[in-house]
Design a protein around this nucleic acid. Structure first.
Lengths: 209, 209
DNA sequence: AAATAATTCAAACGTTTGTTTTAATTCTCG
DNA sequence: CGAGAATTAAAACAAACGTTTGAATTATTT
């Protein structure tokens, strides 16, 4: 059986159920039951359901954001060292590749991917606020770098192109968790590396045309 | 005051609140209160909350899908008449332009746009099932036409590129309803026609590179 | 081993949800 | 005008929600 601590079992169960059912539909009773813990365990260990969500998001988001920040900064530094502006393809790659890759490393992260893939769309403030709070500084770095890589374009245009690219990315992450929606006759065993390459080529062509 | 029938007032209120709060968070009490109707009016006129949602979606989706179908079919027919395959840019335009335009024609449609912009991401089956049921045949027509416009590409590749494009589109529609998320210093008065042109250029470059 | 702290447990709390019921009211038409 | 249907109104329904409580149990420390 699961020998992890109650706290960790709850985190795993919550991640799974938040991803499958959404924050509001994943009830405390379902979470604690999935985690084989008592109903009151969430409030004891985390304080509230919302605090549990924050913990679930932080557990993956903090290391993932560190990776993305590192890669974005190294793109910036390398370009600066070589006395040139960064290219849009390397900026996009630095953000998108670890993002999509992160979601396929283990089943838990896969659940997490549907969660953040949906975070922006979520009508409920709870998820979106927590997510935006963690992603905003990174987003601004991303935005600034992309702007440098597209000299001559005004901020609005860069902003919209960036969002087109992020739309494709988050949509892809959502779909990776909902492959049952594919029409008949299509390959269900997705080669993730090939998919990332396709996505990257798509957004690069769109951004820097 | 509003002289529309109770039924119509409920439809408008539900469209607004479903878009603002999501299907599940928009309570019957909030809807009927917004519509200045009695709590029981929804169940009397529609049968259930879910049936109300179906009505809300159908009211906009049926005419919108008719427009999109017409434009897709006319692209197909014109190409056939001229003895050539349709080009990816005209296929994409036939779907995307009426989609985004539709959402800016009146305030009600704007609410509707956030609703369908979120429909695919929605964790709750209720919204997604109703939406998919209405959009699926149209999606297949779209998919087939795009496949014809990209000869030599296998179905999987075309499918993913189509979804990248749809990701950008739905993300854009979501953002049009959440402009408060823009970073400081960016233009808040979005020129929709310019935005559509940008989006179209983006996805066309991505799909047919 | 005793005492203290940390955790688990069952039960109940107060709200809110969508829906149903029954009576009152308004509208329609002969 | 008055009978009958359609609609609105107020009240109550059971079910589900997150949270709290206080006792029972387990783990840690003295």
């Amino acid at each position: 059986m699961s020998q992890a601590s109650t706290r960790d079992r709850i985190l795993d169960a919550a991640e799974f159920l938040f991803a499958r059912d959404g924050f509001h539909f994943a009830s405390m009773r379902a979470i604690t039951s999935e985690a084989k813990a008592n109903l009151a365990a969430v409030n004891y260990h985390f304080g509230s359901k919302e605090a549990l969500l924050e913990e679930v998001l932080k557990r993956r988001l903090v290391p993932l954001n560190a990776i993305r920040r590192d890669r974005l900064e190294s793109v910036r530094d390398r370009a600066e060292r070589e006395g040139r502006t960064p290219g849009p393809e390397e900026v996009l790659e630095a953000f998108i590749v670890p993002t999509v890759q992160f979601c396929c490393q283990d089943p838990g992260a896969e659940n997490f991917s549907t969660l953040i893939g949906r975070a922006i769309a979520e009508p409920d403030d709870t998820v979106r606020n927590v997510f935006i709070h963690h992603i905003m500084p990174l987003f601004l770095l991303f935005f600034n770098l992309l702007q440098q890589s597209l000299p001559g374009l005004d901020a609005d245009t860069v902003f919209w192109r960036l969002h087109f690219a992020l739309g494709s990315t988050t949509h892809t992450m959502r779909l990776l968790g909902k492959l049952e929606l594919l029409p008949k006759g299509l390959n269900r065993d997705v080669d993730v590396d090939k998919l990332i390459a396709e996505l990257l080529a798509f957004v690069t062509a769109g951004v820097s045309r």
